[in-house]
Computed example of a mutant assay.
Amino acid sequence: MQLILYLQQVFGWSDDLLQHIDEASTKKVYSKKQLILPPENYSRNVYFVEQGLVRMFYYKSGKNITHYFFQEGTFAAGSESTFYHKKSRYGIEAVEQTKVVIVPFPIIEKLATYSIPVNQLIQTILLQSLVGFSSRLQSIQFETAQERYQKLMEQHPDILLRAPLGDIASYLGISPQTLSVIRGHR
């Protein structure tokens, strides 16, 4: 879904607001495995996925760990940088050819000083981030590897078709070998 259409349909943005965002935004296409934003960065941009799939990831003990996947019609951002002016440990990478709209967050903040629909967008981005992180934490803490895989199959079966198994395994918090065993028992 295109960003302007999304903002118009979901939040009822006026033509004036849409024009501000459209003029301030940049569209970019990333190829498979291309880095959109490196880990340990400071970026005040918000990335809207119009087409494709991206993953948020970080490095731990020399390993590349998938933290979250973002599909079409969602916003990806390093919330530490975007909202709190701190360096973010997370990077963003295109899982497949992906088209994103890069929106400078300071423009959104400026528009939010006089617009309720823009504030609703900020709340949505923050809530998506909070719900995603909370769900991930709960999953890692309280579910077995089999349960995490089953949940992913039920909630986001397309990710299983679109993302490499290594990225899926790290997202689930398991080794690629354990993922193969789980998939073999299905």
Rank of each mutant, 00 (worst) to 15 (best):
I4F: 01
L5W: 01
L5D: 14
L7A: 11
Q8N: 15
Q8I: 05
F11A: 09
G12P: 10
G12C: 00
D15K: 04
A24Y: 11
S25G: 13
K27P: 03
K28G: 03
V29T: 11
V29S: 09
K32V: 09
L35F: 03
I36M: 08
E40T: 04
S43W: 07
R44M: 13
Y47A: 04
E50Q: 09
Q51I: 15
G52H: 01
L53R: 04
V54Q: 14
F57S: 11
Y59C: 10
Y59A: 09
K60F: 14
G62Y: 06
G62P: 09
N64Q: 02
Q71M: 09
T74H: 13
F75K: 11
F75D: 08
G78H: 06
S79G: 04
E80A: 05
E80T: 06
T82K: 04
F83C: 07
K86H: 05
S88C: 04
Y90C: 00
Y90G: 03
V95F: 05
Q97S: 12
K99G: 02
K99E: 05
I102R: 02
V103P: 09
P106H: 00
L111Q: 12
T113F: 14
P117G: 00
P117I: 00
V118F: 01
V118D: 00
L121G: 07
L121E: 08
L121C: 14
Q123T: 05
Q123R: 10
I125R: 13
L127C: 07
G132S: 14
F133A: 15
S134Q: 12
S134E: 12
L137K: 03
Q138S: 10
Q138W: 15
S139P: 11
S139E: 15
E143P: 05
Q146A: 11
Y149I: 08
E154G: 03
Q155H: 09
Q155T: 05
H156C: 14
H156I: 01
D158K: 00
I159W: 15
L161G: 11
A163G: 06
A163Y: 08
A163W: 07
G166K: 13
I174Q: 06
P176W: 01
Q177T: 06
Q177E: 14
T178N: 04
T178A: 05
L179P: 07
V181F: 02
V181Y: 02
R183I: 06
H185I: 00
